[in-house]
Design a protein around this nucleic acid. Structure first.
Length: 466
RNA sequence: CCGGAGAUGGUGGAGUGGUCAAUCACACCAGACUGUAAAUCUGGCGGCUUAGCCUACGCAAGUUCGAAUCUUGCUCUCCGGA
């Protein structure tokens, strides 16, 4: 029954092998995101060429279009998109957030957005009325509403209404023939007040258990009877809450766990947490997160500086992983939902995370943001990227990332790629995506090997102290 | 040669007496992007010692407190006719 085998351990880090109905995955692993049955700009051959072992698909999008029944009729998602390796499907929980609270609260998944001061992030943190006013303003743009029984969506395609219950989410994912199914969850925003958070977490528990019940009951007659089910660990930036949630999910009958949430820091949620000094002052050491200060991080002071906010949010992610990992079953694969910037791989794997999915590599690629190694100028500050539009590349004959062995770097110059981007040639999307996806997969593979060879610290140091 | 129309910032093209260093688009420059409503979004884009000042709407001279906008002349471009 055990799908996950740990091959090598070093501290909290694990190198493992995860068995699925469509083959084995070596972990840690990065999963390219193929929301609508396609990793944007990449063919299955491109993905395999870049080293992809598993990709992600999305319940909400595929349910709306072309419809999960159609995909089932066509033989399941694997066959439909001609991808014979594993697929993990998201439950639609993220869309409940990105089409709902994310709009209403003006937040993104990781950093907090700067807000117009006239709306006022209240200086008095007990005064939530200003925030409520702001939320009211965005209400009519919101496309999803959380109900006790599920998520009510207003389709972003045609405005039609749909209720996504835990059962419905399972039905869709089982129709798709996903190898790893995720339970339905509700993401919390940093601006949800503590009472709402408590209610939401109880609701997510219910949804997870309903998901599990339905999954077990209908697995055998599904498109992929060997699918497995991951629970989701939700929460906000609060140690007590995260630890409790970890304990709760650890007691459920899942095959693995995905750790999710919105990782921004709000006025509500640092209060009970211990904020590392480096979060307050990013110019100090960017090394390991340690609990060195009990001061409260207030939003107004950090919101003025985007870098500060971003960094604080990233720290929150890493600290959350640390709080949570030791509470989770050793034999469960642990998936950091939506995570996958370069630094995240190091920090999260070090804290016991095995799987990553992230739109950043493919989206960045399409937007001209291409990954480079430290030896070519990649640093934590530039997120290990260069912007191909920069004038300095106009006649640069070098590949994007000297030493990279991807198809793009083997064959094309920065000058040519910059030209393609500025000319809006569609080929750019493919070449850039091949590079970024390869880069992440290759890096995670190197990290895996470094765990086996007990060389992780050295590798991490080489990258993050660059 | 005659008649008509017009000359605005890298380009196209608004503006037709003060609120114009000049709408807008494109181009260009820089930045952002974390379970994809994203081939998207944000900012800059005459110069400078930049909460201000200087030079600017073909060239020159006027009218006016004040002109990219009105007058006159010149130069050039386009259309029609000889």
């Amino acid at each position: 029954m055990a799908n996950f085998k740990i091959v090598s351990k070093d501290g909290m880090m694990r190198a493992g092998i995860l068995k699925t109905a469509h083959g084995e995955i070596k972990t840690p692993i990065y999963m390219p995101v193929g929301t609508q049955g396609s990793v944007k700009a990449l063919s299955p051959e491109d993905l395999k060429g870049a080293g992809a072992q598993i990709i992600l698909g999305n319940t909400y999008h595929l349910y709306l279009r072309p419809g999960s029944k159609l995909i089932k009729k066509m033989g399941g998602l694997h066959k439909f998109m001609n991808w014979d390796k594993p697929i993990l499907t998201d439950s639609g929980g993220f869309q409940a957030f990105s089409l709902g609270a994310m709009i209403a609260h003006g937040v993104r998944k990781v950093p907090l957005l700067k807000r117009d001061s006239k709306y006022g992030i209240s200086k008095d943190k007990t005064n939530a009325k200003n925030l409520t006013g702001l939320f009211e303003k965005s209400k009519n743009q919101v496309l999803s509403t959380i109900k006790e029984e599920g998520v009510e969506f207003k389709s972003h395609l045609d405005g039609s209404k749909h209720l996504l219950t835990p059962e419905k989410s399972m039905e869709v994912q089982l129709d798709l023939g996903s190898d790893i199914v995720l339970v339905l969850d509700e993401l919390l925003s940093p601006y949800h007040d503590p009472r709402y958070v408590k209610k939401s977490l109880e609701r997510t528990h219910n949804w997870e258990q309903q998901s599990l019940t339905y999954f077990k009951k209908h697995l055998k007659e599904s498109t992929n009877p060997k699918a497995q089910l991951f629970g989701i660990l939700q929460g906000v930036y609060d140690k007590e809450i995260r630890v409790n949630e970890a304990k709760w999910v650890a007691n459920q009958d899942f095959d693995g766990v995905s750790i999710g949430g919105s990782f921004g820091i709000s006025e509500y949620w640092p209060a009970r947490s211990v904020i590392p000094n480096e979060v307050r002052n990013p110019s100090t050491s960017l090394s390991d997160v340690t609990e060195t200060s009990s001061e409260v991080l207030r939003l107004p002071s950090v919101a003025q500086d985007n870098i500060n906010v971003n960094w604080a949010a990233s720290k929150a992610i890493y600290q959350t992983m640390e709080w949570v990992a030791s509470e989770l079953p050793e034999e469960w694969p642990r998936h950091g939902l939506g995570l996958g910037e370069i630094r995240d791989f190091f920090e999260c794997i070090e804290r016991g995370i095995d799987m990553f999915d992230c739109v950043a590599p493919t989206r960045r690629a399409r937007n001209g943001s291409l990954y480079i190694q430290p030896k070519n100028g990649g640093t934590p500050k530039n997120k290990f990227t260069l912007n191909i539009t920069r004038a300095e590349f106009v006649d640069d004959p070098k590949p994007i990332d000297l030493g990279c062995e991807c198809y793009t770097c083997q064959n094309f110059s920065r000058a040519y790629l910059r030209h393609l981007y500025l000319s809006r040639e569609i080929l750019f999307h493919r070449l850039a995506s091949i590079h970024n996806v390869y880069f992440c997969l290759h890096l995670v593979e190197q990290i895996r090997q470094s765990i086996i060879d007990k060389q992780f610290k050295k590798l991490k140091n080489k990258w993050l102290n660059s």
